[in-house]
Simulated assay, not measured.
Amino acid sequence: MSNPVSAVAGPVVSLGFGVARVPVGLLARLTGNGGNPEWGPTLAVDSVEAGVRQVLGSLLGDPGLARQGEVQDARVGQRGEAAEREAAADARREVADQRLQDRRQRDQQAREQVREREQEQKERLEKERKQREQEAQERERTRKQEAAKDEERAQEKADEKAHEARRTRVEAESEAVAAEREAAERSQEALELAEAADAAKRRR
């Protein structure tokens, strides 16, 4: 004769855990895990249900109920292992993605550093070019100033020489005029003396 408690134990367990799954299912849908049998809370409820079936089956002497619990527990274990493998795969993907992101970030930083060095070198070369150009302009300006000063000094010397030459010429001309005047005066004196002598002879 079958145990009446054992006959209703299975349906009661199914009904009770069916009610317990309602909030879990709502939470699963809210978190985007609806229909995911490997979601942690779903596995936890199924695992507890499997354990309850095994315990009740053992206590009530109902091997069928205990067997249901064992089968359900085995399936929960398989799903748990699958979830662990998926989690491990997700973790590996996350690590790989993070490494890829880190490498891309390092590459981006390296490219930015190269661009910065190129820009710095370009600016440095441009600065040096402008400095050389300014120095060349300054040298040219100094050269022109020195050339102008040399030309001015040369002109001053030429003017001094011309002035000295004019002064010398004027002095020479003055001396020549004075000599001519002196010679004329002597000639006049000689003429006057000769005339006086002639006059004296005529008076005698």
Rank of each mutant, 00 (worst) to 15 (best):
V48C: 07
L65N: 00
Q137Y: 10
E81N: 10
V45A: 02
R79Y: 05
S2C: 05
A87H: 13
E84M: 11
E112S: 07
E135A: 04
A190W: 15
E138D: 11
A200C: 07
S14A: 11
G51S: 10
R79F: 03
R75W: 04
L59D: 06
V95M: 09
A7I: 06
V55P: 00
V12N: 10
A199K: 15
A20N: 09
E86R: 15
A179M: 12
F17W: 04
L30E: 09
D90R: 15
R202P: 02
G16C: 09
A147I: 06
P4E: 03
Q145C: 05
P41F: 00
E116W: 10
G34D: 02
G80L: 00
R181F: 08
E152N: 06
E171K: 11
Q108M: 08
D159A: 04
F17E: 00
R115C: 04
E120T: 08
A179Y: 12
Q68F: 01
Q131C: 05
V71F: 07
V55L: 03
Q98H: 15
P41D: 00
A176Q: 14
D46H: 04
M1D: 12
P41G: 01
A154P: 02
P11Y: 06
P63A: 01
E156T: 07
E70N: 09
E138L: 01
D97G: 10
V55K: 00
K127D: 05
L43H: 05
A178L: 14
A200R: 05
A82K: 13
G64N: 12
G80V: 00
G69N: 01
V48K: 01
T31D: 01
A87N: 13
A20W: 09
E126D: 15
R29C: 06
Q121E: 10
R143H: 14
E152D: 08
V22P: 02
